[in-house]
């Protein structure tokens, strides 16, 4: 059997040697941090206006993370490209000739992608939080407040899981263009729209992005079907299902 550390090393070389990795991960960071900072600044300057009509307490953490809904698209693209470029270039046959144990291969890929995505997501989450709080001035919160640390880590897990979910779906579709065409509109348009439509939203509340983003909530909101940890588990289940599905397709299909 192929040595797993060797597969990890090889997959790491693949990931680090293409430019799309840098671009997509840098974009994840810039968009999440930048939009969060902008919204935090605007909120601080127009606090009365922005919070008028809100009944609950002001969520300073959530404000700092306002950019994550766009930032996640970049890390989704990273997940798609890292798997999809094997198919778009025909390199998958070279890869499978080198590592014919397909389950081991996809596991190695997922571990490398997941570790890199988590590292970037964690840095992004903490920078986003601290910069946002600095810009919120007197309305800011701290890591020591209840649930805040969970929300910041939750943001990192959320981004990582969406990345791996996308990687798994790409392996299932074994086509980079198709995967981008399905995943980006789904996360950018379909899921947010459906979770606002009455009746349909009960279903949409179980989509991976909605479920995963419950981790970012600091205060309990009315109308939530489940809590943050249940949301984490639902998102994790989606991620694992996509990866297992990808592995099954990869194992059964002619390359």
């Amino acid at each position: 059997m192929a040595s797993f550390p060797a597969v990890l090393q090889s997959e790491w070389t693949k990931v680090r040697s293409v430019r799309s990795t840098i671009w997509t991960l840098a974009l994840t960071f810039v968009v999440t941090v930048g939009l969060g900072a902008l919204l935090s600044l605007l909120t601080n300057n127009n606090f009365e206006e922005f919070t008028r009509g809100d009944n609950g307490p002001f969520d300073a953490t959530g404000t700092a993370f306002s950019g994550i809904m766009l930032g996640e698209l970049a890390i989704i693209v990273f997940g798609v490209l890292a798997v999809g470029n094997e198919y778009s270039t025909g390199m998958i046959r070279v890869t499978l000739a080198a590592v014919p144990q397909r389950g081991t291969l996809l596991t190695g890929k997922a571990v490398v992608l997941g570790a890199l995505a988590f590292l970037v997501a964690l840095v992004t989450a903490f920078v986003t939080f601290f910069l946002g709080q600095a810009l919120l001035g007197s309305h800011s919160t701290g890591l020591g407040e209840p649930h805040v640390l969970r929300a910041v880590f939750g943001a990192a897990f959320y981004l990582t899981m969406l990345c791996l979910f996308s990687a798994g779906v790409t392996a299932m579709l074994h086509n980079q263009t198709l995967a981008l065409g399905v995943l980006v509109p789904f996360f950018f348009l379909l899921s947010p729209i459906l979770s606002a439509v009455p009746k349909v939203k009960t279903l949409a509340h179980y989509f991976p992005d909605y479920a995963g983003s419950r981790m970012l909530l600091v205060y309990e909101q009315s109308g939530q079907p489940y809590g943050p940890w249940a949301g984490f588990l639902i998102c994790l289940a989606w991620t694992l299902a996509a990866l297992v599905g990808g592995a099954l397709v990869l194992k059964s299909r002619d390359a």
Binding site: A2, A6, V7, S10, T13, A98
Partner: peptide, 8 residues
């Protein structure tokens, strides 16, 4: 390099 690494 990645090919070499995959097979040690």
């Amino acid at each position: 390099l990645w090919l070499a690494q995959s097979n040690r």
